Measured scan of single mutants.
Amino acid sequence: DNLVIALHSYEPSHDGDLGFEKGEQLRILEQSGEWWKAQSLTTGQEGFIPFNFVAKA
Results as ranks from 00 to 15, higher is better:
residue 1 D to S: 10
residue 2 N to W: 13
residue 3 L to V: 12
residue 4 V to D: 01
residue 4 V to L: 06
residue 5 I to S: 04
residue 5 I to H: 05
residue 5 I to G: 01
residue 5 I to N: 03
residue 6 A to H: 02
residue 6 A to Q: 01
residue 7 L to I: 11
residue 7 L to A: 05
residue 7 L to K: 06
residue 7 L to W: 06
residue 8 H to I: 11
residue 8 H to W: 14
residue 8 H to G: 06
residue 9 S to W: 06
residue 9 S to D: 10
residue 10 Y to C: 06
residue 10 Y to M: 05
residue 10 Y to N: 02
residue 11 E to K: 14
residue 11 E to A: 13
residue 11 E to W: 14
residue 11 E to R: 14
residue 12 P to L: 04
residue 14 H to N: 12
residue 14 H to T: 09
residue 15 D to F: 12
residue 15 D to S: 11
residue 16 G to E: 07
residue 16 G to N: 09
residue 16 G to A: 07
residue 16 G to L: 08
residue 17 D to M: 14
residue 17 D to Y: 15
residue 17 D to Q: 15
residue 18 L to E: 01
residue 18 L to F: 06
residue 19 G to K: 12
residue 19 G to F: 07
residue 19 G to H: 08
residue 19 G to Y: 06
residue 20 F to I: 07
residue 20 F to V: 05
residue 20 F to G: 00
residue 22 K to Y: 06
residue 22 K to H: 05
residue 23 G to W: 06
residue 23 G to Q: 02
residue 24 E to W: 05
residue 24 E to D: 11
residue 24 E to V: 04
residue 25 Q to F: 15
residue 25 Q to Y: 15
residue 26 L to S: 00
residue 26 L to N: 01
residue 27 R to Q: 06
residue 27 R to A: 06
residue 27 R to P: 00
residue 27 R to S: 03
residue 27 R to K: 09
residue 28 I to M: 03
residue 29 L to A: 01
residue 29 L to V: 08
residue 30 E to S: 12
residue 30 E to A: 09
residue 30 E to Y: 12
residue 30 E to V: 10
residue 30 E to I: 09
residue 31 Q to G: 08
residue 31 Q to I: 08
residue 31 Q to D: 10
residue 31 Q to V: 08
residue 32 S to L: 12
residue 33 G to A: 05
residue 33 G to S: 06
residue 33 G to W: 04
residue 34 E to P: 13
residue 34 E to R: 14
residue 34 E to C: 15
residue 34 E to A: 13
residue 35 W to S: 07
residue 35 W to M: 12
residue 36 W to G: 02
residue 36 W to M: 07
residue 36 W to R: 04
residue 36 W to D: 00
residue 36 W to F: 08
residue 37 K to G: 01
residue 37 K to M: 12
residue 37 K to N: 04
residue 38 A to Y: 03
residue 38 A to N: 00
residue 38 A to F: 04
residue 38 A to E: 00
residue 39 Q to P: 00
residue 39 Q to E: 07
residue 39 Q to F: 09
residue 40 S to V: 04
residue 41 L to A: 05
residue 42 T to Q: 11
residue 42 T to W: 13
residue 42 T to V: 13
residue 42 T to H: 11
residue 44 G to Y: 07
residue 44 G to R: 06
residue 45 Q to W: 07
residue 45 Q to S: 08
residue 46 E to L: 12
residue 46 E to H: 08
residue 47 G to V: 03
residue 47 G to A: 02
residue 47 G to N: 00
residue 47 G to M: 03
residue 48 F to H: 06
residue 48 F to D: 04
residue 49 I to G: 01
residue 49 I to W: 03
residue 49 I to S: 00
residue 50 P to Q: 05
residue 50 P to D: 05
residue 51 F to D: 05
residue 51 F to P: 14
residue 51 F to T: 06
residue 51 F to W: 14
residue 52 N to I: 08
residue 53 F to K: 06
residue 53 F to W: 09
residue 54 V to W: 04
residue 55 A to C: 14
residue 56 K to E: 10
residue 56 K to R: 11
residue 57 A to G: 10
